[in-house]
Design a protein around this nucleic acid. Sequence first.
DNA 1: CAAAGGATATACCGTTCGGTATACTGTAGA
DNA 2: TCTACAGTATACCGAACGGTATATCCTTTG
Lengths: 193, 193
Amino acid sequence: MENRERILACALDLFYQRGFDAVGTQEICQRAGVTKPTMYHYFGSKYGLLETLLAQELGGFAEMLSQAAHYRVSVEQSLYRFATVLLDCADANYRAYLLMMSLAYSARENEAYQAVRPYINKIHSLAVQLFDEAAPVLGNMNGRQEQFALGFLGLFNHYILFRGNQKTPGSRVKVSEETKRSLIHQFMHGINS
Amino acid sequence: MENRERILACALDLFYQRGFDAVGTQEICQRAGVTKPTMYHYFGSKYGLLETLLAQELGGFAEMLSQAAHYRVSVEQSLYRFATVLLDCADANYRAYLLMMSLAYSARENEAYQAVRPYINKIHSLAVQLFDEAAPVLGNMNGRQEQFALGFLGLFNHYILFRGNQKTPGSRVKVSEETKRSLIHQFMHGINS
DNA sequence: CAAAGGATATACCGTTCGGTATACTGTAGA
DNA sequence: TCTACAGTATACCGAACGGTATATCCTTTG
């Protein structure tokens, strides 16, 4: 029960750094200090390795998010709770989250994209659900829930993604409490303060 | 002067569909009806092919965008002009734009990411510049130009990206005039109508 | 016409790809 | 003690990878 975890850890490292297609199984195994049959014993295929990796790193994520995807008290508080879970998870497992995001934005016919699709769809549908529940309060949305969800996730994901790019590789990327509130305020009330 | 263009066209097709790393030079050449030395004669390397492709497809894009990245008349009109160029270019060359976006979101140490980096940085800095120029009108931004630019581009890019995913492969993806105005309104005034 | 040089093909390079047949461990249960 | 099985390694597979040495075409130019 040690090789298995080491393989997963090395795979996450390498996939995050250089991408799924750009990394070979040999390099993963070499860095993990095992041989290829060991990896294939546990995961069956390179794609299976990716699936297991995503399930392990992101499995609890969707669960936590689904609990936060309900309207409660006010729109602002609801969005704040949802965004908090989103950002906390992204912080807690930064590499896995960015791996997911990069795969989500990759070519649709790439097989690696298929692996993250369920997670992306889940997050998206939860965001839509939240706005659905907020519809009675927000007033005539006229089906703009989709657009709101897209905008909301786009704002935060884009922020997480590009903040990461600006930092030096080693530094821990953490979206501050102040930034979080500022982003939510921007989403809710626009840029005219 | 025909093989060269056909190679570029096939490369765009395949990179868009399956990603840079997942596509081999042999497949590109085969589909273009040429042999590998021909491709290497024109582009020198697989990476050189990508660079040439991006330069051809996105070269004029940054130029057009830079002309629109100035404050004029009002914030709303300025953002509208900027967004119009952004969306028109994304529409006019949908595959190239999504290729750029997917590479932009890919792993930072992937060599393909290096190829799109200048374009991404350019677009981002132009958006920041626009908000910089609007600072006197928008009031105390306190360095929030960065955040606004991120939010603006995040909203639109996310929208372009995920709209594309929902459509059937063949259908032309076009962000309508109405949607464009709605998105800008959302960005400027938030979700409280 | 001759020379030059861009464009293209044949055939091939060494390397790495994802994946596996086989056999050997070490340990747990009968 | 024998059996069974998960785990692991050696050695290997055919295919595809990115890239190239060499030679021939074809057009342009002197």
